[in-house]
C-alpha cells in the first residue's frame, strides 16, 4: 500500500497531489508536462518534494524536513521511459545487478521470454525485448512498488498489445502497487484499475 502527499513547485505551476495505491495498477494520465514523471521521481527518491509525506507499506520514505530515505533503500522498482539498460553489461548482468537470487532471475527471464538473450548486450536486442529486460530487471529487486514511465511508448502496435497482456499477467503474479504514467488514453483504460487524470500538477477528476 502506497500513500503519498506531494507538494513541489515546478517552473510553471505547483504540483500538489494526494493519493493512495493498493495492490492495483494506477495510471497517471495527462498531457506532457503536467507533472506525471515528477511524481514518479518523488516516489523513487530521484527528486525531493518541497513538502509532503510518502508511506510505503507503513514504512516512512519521506516526511518534510524529517525523513528522506535514500533511493537505494526505498525498494521501489522503476522502469524508465527509455529503459536505461546498462549498455556495457549483458542482459543477464543487467537483470542480476540488483539481486543475489539466481533463481528469481532465471524465473523472471523465463516468464518474460528473454532467457535466450542472456549473453546479448542491450544494443543487440529489439525494442520489445529491451522493455521486457527492463521489466525483469526492475522486478528482480523484489520491489514493494513498481513505477512505469510510459513503458510502451517506444513499441510498435503489435508489440504493445503483447506487452499489455504481459503486464496484466505479471501483476496478477506479483500483486504489488504499480503506478504507471502514460498519455495514451486507450492504454490507460485498458491497464488501469484506476486512472488519475492530471492537469498542471493536480488531479482533475477520478474515475473508478
Amino acid at each position: 500500500m502506497l500513500k503519498a502527499k506531494i507538494k513541489k513547485s515546478l517552473s510553471h505551476f505547483l504540483l500538489h497531489v494526494d493519493f493512495v495505491v493498493g495492490d492495483e495498477i494506477v495510471v497517471l494520465f495527462g498531457p506532457s508536462g503536467s507533472g506525471k514523471t515528477t511524481i514518479l521521481n518523488c516516489l523513487a527518491g530521484l527528486t525531493k518534494p518541497d513538502k509532503g509525506e510518502i508511506l510505503l507499506n507503513d514504512r516512512q520514505l519521506f516526511m518534510t524536513k524529517q525523513i528522506d530515505i535514500a533511493i537505494q533503500h526505498r525498494h521501489i522498482g522503476y522502469l524508465f521511459q527509455d529503459y536505461a539498460l546498462f549498455p556495457h553489461m549483458t542482459v543477464r548482468r543487467n537483470i542480476t545487478y540488483g539481486t543475489k537470487s539466481k533463481n528469481l532471475v532465471d524465473q523472471l527471464m523465463k516468464e518474460l521470454h528473454i532467457d535466450h538473450l542472456q549473453e546479448n548486450y542491450p544494443g543487440e536486442i529489439s525494442g520489445g525485448e529491451k522493455q521486457r529486460v527492463a521489466l525483469a530487471r526492475a522486478l528482480a529487486t523484489e520491489p514493494q512498488l513498481l513505477l512505469l514511465d510510459e513503458p510502451f511508448s517506444a513499441l510498435d502496435e503489435a508489440t504493445k498489445e503483447k506487452s499489455h497482456e504481459e503486464l496484466i499477467r505479471l501483476h496478477k503474479l506479483w500483486r504489488i502497487p504499480i503506478v504507471m504514467v502514460t498519455h495514451s488514453h486507450q492504454e490507460a483504460e485498458k491497464l488501469g484499475d484506476r486512472i488519475l487524470y492530471m492537469e498542471e500538477g493536480h488531479f482533475v477528476s477520478r474515475h473508478a
Binding site: 533511493i71 537505494q72 545487478y97 540488483g98 528482480a140 529487486t141
Partner: peptide, 21 residues
Amino acid sequence: DATLESAAYTMGAGKWRVFWT
C-alpha cells in the same frame, strides 16, 4: 545518460558501486 546512474540507485546500489560499475 544520467538516467543509467538513477536506474542503478533504484536497484539498491550505493554511490561507490554506481561509480565503479
